[in-house]
């Protein structure tokens, strides 16, 4: 583990805490509305579809498709400076929602548009378990 590299820690709120608590246990979870049954991401205080306020957080399939990716050569935070260049990807989960994440392994080596991905977890940053994506 690199000790001189860090990432900004999540700002945990009542709304997003379940996402990060699942991530701490290496689970990628999504909020499913207890009223209309739909999911959404990122977390919201009310269901953006029906405005209900209670959600069932369940593990996602972890399968996703690569939509786009970039490589940061500039650092906007002190702890990130030692990590540049690093990638950020935009993926579409099989559940239909999109999220930003990082590519690792074969997907980082050779990203391809629309390549299938699977979630994995990295503990290389202090005090942070982060869901990231590798080639499926």
């Amino acid at each position: 583990m690199l000790t001189d590299v860090s990432r900004p820690l999540p700002k945990r709120t009542p709304v997003n805490a379940p996402f990060w608590e699942h991530a701490d246990r290496q689970i990628l979870a999504l909020p499913w509305c207890e009223s209309c049954g739909k999911t959404h991401f990122p977390p919201s205080p009310r269901c953006p579809h029906c405005l209900h306020d209670a959600f069932d957080w369940r593990p996602a399939s972890g399968r996703a498709t690569l939509v786009s990716w970039v490589v940061f050569h500039r650092s906007y935070w002190d702890g990130v400076a030692a990590d540049v260049p690093y990638n950020v990807c935009l993926v579409e989960l099989d559940e239909g929602v999109r999220m930003l994440s990082n590519l690792v392994g074969a997907a980082e080596e050779a990203p391809r548009y629309k390549m299938p991905l699977k979630v994995t977890f990295t503990d290389r940053f202090p005090d942070l378990i982060l869901p990231v994506f590798d080639a499926a």
């Binding site: 900004p8 990122p42 690093y86 950020v88």
Partner: peptide, 14 residues
């Protein structure tokens, strides 16, 4: 960066 904190910060996206 810190001027505009957001949900995606832990992945380094800003």
């Amino acid at each position: 960066g810190e001027e505009s904190p957001g949900f995606w910060d832990p992945w380094g996206f800003t």
